[in-house]
């Protein structure tokens, strides 16, 4: 029996738990699992501008903000008390590849070489954090869903639009990883 508190969870534990979120939210709230729409709700709530995209009753979507708030709290709890050490045991091939590209720090969830407040104002840090974040935020809203809304929730209901979106996520990620990252890392 592995130590489920401090050891990372294997895919066959975590994956089914993520999948169970779909029926749980449907049965207990008639809500479809999704996260990226919260970005829109937050904007609609906080930015009182005359933008058509933000004109809707965001108050009906408060549940989504509560859910996302819960994710943050859950993440903090796990990060504070449930991480044995934060090192992620990735495959040796990946370590070799990334080292060849200049990544040095492998002792955390993210390479501190790239992701830190100190790096935010460097060109590289700006690209990885701000531009990357912008692409995530803009892309998910344009595509009307993210990994949760499309790949888990939508695909669970065999939605063609979600299949197309999921394939596009992967194609985009592959292009960035294999064509662009070698140039900018």
């Amino acid at each position: 029996m592995i130590d489920l508190i401090h050891e990372p969870w294997p895919w066959y534990v975590a994956g089914p738990l993520i999948g169970l979120m779909v029926p749980l939210l449907l049965v207990f709230g008639n809500r479809a699992l999704g996260i990226s729409s919260s970005l829109r709700h937050i904007c609609a709530m906080c930015v009182p501008m005359n933008i058509e995209y933000f004109k809707y009753e965001w108050r009906n979507e408060k549940w989504n903000l509560a859910f996302v708030g819960g994710i943050l709290i859950g993440g903090l709890i796990a990060a504070q008390w449930m991480l044995g050490d934060a090192k992620v045991e990735i495959s040796q091939e990946t370590v070799t590849d990334l080292s060849a590209l200049g990544v040095k720090q492998f002792d955390s969830y993210l390479p501190a070489d790239l992701f830190s407040w100190a790096n935010l104002l460097s060109v590289k840090g700006f690209v990885f954090m701000c531009l990357g974040g912008f692409l995530v935020g803009f892309g998910t809203r344009y595509a009307n869903g993210c990994t949760s809304g499309h790949s888990i929730s939508g695909l669970s209901n065999l939605q063609f639009g979600s299949l197309v979106a999921t394939i596009s996520f992967f194609v985009g990620g592959l292009l960035m990883t294999h064509l662009v990252l070698p140039l900018i890392l």
Partner: peptide, 10 residues
């Protein structure tokens, strides 16, 4: 949107 998100994801 999917491609754009994919770039950001990576």
């Amino acid at each position: 949107g999917g491609l754009i998100f994919g770039f950001g994801w990576a």
